[in-house]
Design a protein around this nucleic acid. Structure first.
Lengths: 242, 242
DNA sequence: CGTAACTTTGACCTAAGTCAAGGCGCGTGG
DNA sequence: CCACGCGCCTTGACTTAGGTCAAAGTTACG
């Protein structure tokens, strides 16, 4: 049975902006249902359209692009609260694919209702644009990371970013958060080979900075890691939830 | 004397979507003036806010980020028709800097009018979001390029993208377009060293694929170059102009 | 208990980086 | 009118971060 927006567990988190009663009512109408998918499910396919848009409620996934020669670029990791399918909603062609890494529960919206939102909920439309601009900002930072940082800096940067997001979402307890990805996923996100990623992670482990085994990430000193990364945001600002 | 929106030379280009009379009137009100800056002028500064937003009318520039150790990542090249300052408009902090490479003429808007746009011009707000989503898509592709492609593929990809944009803007005549950047700018955009960029460009020159001297780029066979890049969009779709 | 999907480690290789020296065009000032 | 300084491009010699290959550990699971 689908949760009502007003009971949405994410809404309670302090990292998300508050809803007005009106917005809440609109979101409830906008939401057409809930979807649970198994790990490994393809949610969106690069180059194709989708009649549905999602917000991740539970579980994690990856956005990625596949290049001709078979290589894969992970564009971002999807955590609860992330909006999926903006491109399919506006243009009608996704520029990347989305896959569930764990079992995921998603909030489902109708692409066709998006225009209504722009027409009647300018505040929500503004939030959507904010989200797009923020994601653009993030990708710029990722680009700078892959383009300019060394392997150890890249990995430190990525772990800091993920851990900070986890903290905001209340996923961190005892300096640990669940991180169900494979090293290959991280490697593909940072433009590194699996082997080198593994060896670099080992260095960070030796230095007692991070531990990542059995799907759990542990970071002892986030600031030290951020310093090693050569600067990385450790406190994401309050953001809208759609 | 500032051009009126209805006489805007960009509007006539077929790569931009048509305006309704109403939209045209709104844009005219939205526009607060015109600005011409010399080459080398800093238009936006990473981390700071800006009361003004721009659309490039003439000239070229770069968006870039500066990392702690002094390295620079060029995030995109700015060509006529590009909107500048979306992030400053929505969040109020730019996530990258913008610098004019040549003398530029810009259309100036007030950041504070942006909300009016969402309130009363949903169609224009939608276009703005489309722009943000498109830029996000582009950055994803750039990330994949820097993360997964070899030097020669990266350069081929970048030149194809730039040349295609130039074609859409009518900057190409006789297979040539003005490209006033330094090799260092291209290197910084692709995560390569200046020296390696130079040597790789030399290879493309030897192969008779591209010529780039004296601020002019010549591409003989765009499709061959795109193939070498391992796939790159050669025909950008129609886009809104703001 | 076998097998499949990940991680780890070691040995070796190469694409790209760094360093350094010239070249070339252009503006400025003696 | 020439020279010198500056910004940018070019080239060669050498170094290195990170890639590739290959094999062996580890879980987790049917």
């Amino acid at each position: 049975m689908a949760t009502k927006c007003k009971d949405c567990p994410l809404r309670a988190l302090s990292c998300f902006q508050d809803f007005t009663q009106d917005e809440l009512a609109f979101m409830q109408r906008f939401k057409t249902g809930e979807l649970t998918v198994e790990a490994g499910t393809q949610l969106m396919m690069e180059g194709s359209s989708s009649p549905q848009l999602f917000t991740a409620l539970r579980g994690m996934g990856v956005r990625y692009k596949t290049l001709v020669h078979g290589r894969r670029q992970v564009v971002n990791f999807i955590l609860p609260g992330d909006f999926i399918g903006l491109q399919a909603g506006l243009m009608d062609e996704m520029r990347h694919s989305v896959e569930a890494t764990t079992r995921m529960t998603l909030c489902v919206f109708n692409r066709s209702d998006l225009w209504t939102m722009f027409k009647h909920q300018p505040r929500r439309a503004y939030d959507l644009t904010w989200l797009a601009a923020t994601e653009e900002g993030f990708l710029g930072e990722a680009l700078a990371t892959v383009g300019q940082r060394t392997a150890i800096e890249r990995i430190a940067w990525a772990l800091v970013r993920i851990f900070s997001r986890g903290e905001a979402l209340g996923l961190v307890r005892d300096r640990m958060m669940p991180l169900p990805y494979r090293q290959q996923d991280l490697a593909d996100a940072l433009g590194l080979s699996l082997v080198h990623t593994n060896k670099t992670l080992a260095k960070l482990r030796e230095r007692q900075l991070v531990g990542w085994q059995g799907g759990t990430l542990r970071i002892n000193d986030l600031d030290a890691l951020a310093a090693l990364a050569g600067g990385a945001d450790t406190t994401p600002e309050k953001r809208p939830l759609i």
